[in-house]
């Protein structure tokens, strides 16, 4: 089993850290993982993206041009990556700020109102964990328990008191993700 994922959005949305937590969750599940960020001019103001690969086998190329799953958090990323999802693949997006919605009919499209939900919960910082929760609901490749372990591994000890609210975000995301109508 190999899952190739692109996560893309604005810098500051927690795109890279979401990818890192997902990669650590994979390690907790004894999988091979790779995490390849965009580190170029785009992360210096603008869009940020990261390719995460989770696999039960040795990972060949960390660079791929089509993905099993795209997690899209802004319009420029949707424009750029909608067509890179493999036929039959999955696209998850937060409709907040999206004016041109995805149109493909050969992939599974889910929407998750994570920006709105994070605001409702009074904690905009758990936005990315809500999205991650949505992802593991539709693609249960890693378990919630291993995501929490991944969080513990990727957060420095001094931030470990934030784990309960992040867990809450993951669980909320699992509840609110829905098939796009």
């Amino acid at each position: 089993m190999t899952e190739e994922i692109i996560i893309a959005g604005f810098g500051g949305q927690g795109v890279l850290s979401m990818g890192k937590i997902l990669a650590y969750s994979g390690i907790m599940q004894q999988m091979e993982v790779s995490w390849m960020p965009s580190y170029g001019p785009e992360m210096r103001g603008g869009t940020a993206n990261v390719t995460v690969i989770l696999s039960t086998e040795r990972i060949s190329s960390p660079i791929v041009n089509e993905y099993d799953t795209a997690i899209i958090l802004n319009q420029p990323s949707l424009d750029k990556f909608e067509n890179t999802v493999k036929p039959g693949g999955t696209l998850i997006y937060d409709p907040n700020g999206i004016t041109r919605h995805p149109t493909r009919t050969d992939i599974n499209i889910y929407s998750i109102e994570a920006t709105e939900e994070a605001a409702n919960m009074g904690n905009t910082k758990i936005f990315n964990m809500i999205v991650l929760g949505g992802y593991i609901k539709v693609k249960p490749i890693v378990s919630v328990e291993n995501v929490i372990k991944g969080l513990e591994k990727s957060l420095p000890k001094r931030h470990h008191h934030l784990i309960p609210e992040n867990k809450e975000g993951v669980l909320k995301g699992m509840q609110i993700i829905q098939v796009k109508k």
Partner: peptide, 8 residues
Amino acid sequence: VIGQMMEK
């Protein structure tokens, strides 16, 4: 690629 990528 190798410098910026994270792996196990």
